[in-house]
Simulated assay, not measured.
Amino acid sequence: MNPTRKRRLTIVVLIAAAAALAVGLGVYALQNNMNYLLTPSQVQSGQAADYKTFRLGGMVKAGSIQRSKDTLQVTFSVVDAGGAMPVEYTGILPDLFRDNQSVIATGHMDGARFVATEVLAKHDETYMPKELKDAMAKAHANKKVGEESAQGDMP
């Protein structure tokens, strides 16, 4: 093989390897920064086990908000049609945060509770993220199917 041709082939192979490495590192970096949106029933079914951090979406359970008297720590429950999840947050909550309001919290699981690093509240009467709306509708449909089959078992 001609030395010039061999040098060109080496350069092309090195460039291709560098491009493959760059693409691989980019995909790896993006994978670690993704936040998945899950409902309390999805978390309780074990779907959150694969994620270090994720978003938890649902409604704030009425009467579940408890504020610490001397710190900014707040605990509350997020519910959907099929489950409830206790949430702990330290910080200032949005003005629209209250009972029976849609909420999305970003954070991680610590045992059986969700520790939030950010809490977002629904901003008007008609807004709900598409992912959350679809997940809650699916959970509600699954709950109805379960109730119907349980009623069918009754004599």
Rank of each mutant, 00 (worst) to 15 (best):
D70K: 15
Q44E: 11
V78C: 11
S102Y: 08
S68I: 04
R113L: 04
K61N: 10
D99H: 02
K61D: 08
M109Q: 10
V103E: 02
M59R: 12
I92K: 11
M59C: 09
D95P: 00
H108W: 15
K69D: 11
A105V: 11
G58R: 02
V74N: 04
Q101F: 01
E88T: 14
N100E: 12
G111A: 08
G111Y: 02
I92Y: 08
D99L: 04
S64T: 05
Q47V: 07
R55E: 14
A112T: 15
S45W: 06
E88D: 12
F97R: 04
A81S: 14
I65T: 07
Q44R: 09
Q101P: 02
D50E: 14
A62P: 04
G46I: 02
Y51T: 14
Q73K: 11
G57K: 01
K61L: 12
V60H: 03
G58M: 06
D70A: 13
F97Q: 01
G91N: 11
G82T: 02
V74P: 01
G83T: 01
V87T: 09
H108P: 00
N100G: 06
K69G: 02
K61T: 14
Q47I: 04
Q73G: 15
F54Q: 00
R113T: 14
D99P: 00
A84L: 11
T106Y: 02
D95H: 12
Q101N: 13
V74W: 03
S102H: 10
A81I: 10
F76T: 03
T53Y: 00
S45V: 12
I104F: 00
L72S: 12
D99I: 01
Q101C: 13
R98D: 15
A84G: 15
S68C: 04
R67P: 08
Q66H: 12
G58E: 05
L93N: 03
A81C: 12
M109K: 03
M109L: 01
M109F: 04
D99R: 08
A81W: 03
T53P: 00
A62G: 08
I65K: 01
G58L: 08
G82V: 05
T75L: 13
Q66I: 06
K52P: 12
V79C: 12
T71N: 07
R98Y: 08
R55K: 14
Q42L: 02
T75E: 14
G111R: 03
T90H: 05
K61E: 15
T71L: 00
M109A: 02
Q101K: 06
K69L: 13
S68G: 13
D95I: 15
P86C: 03
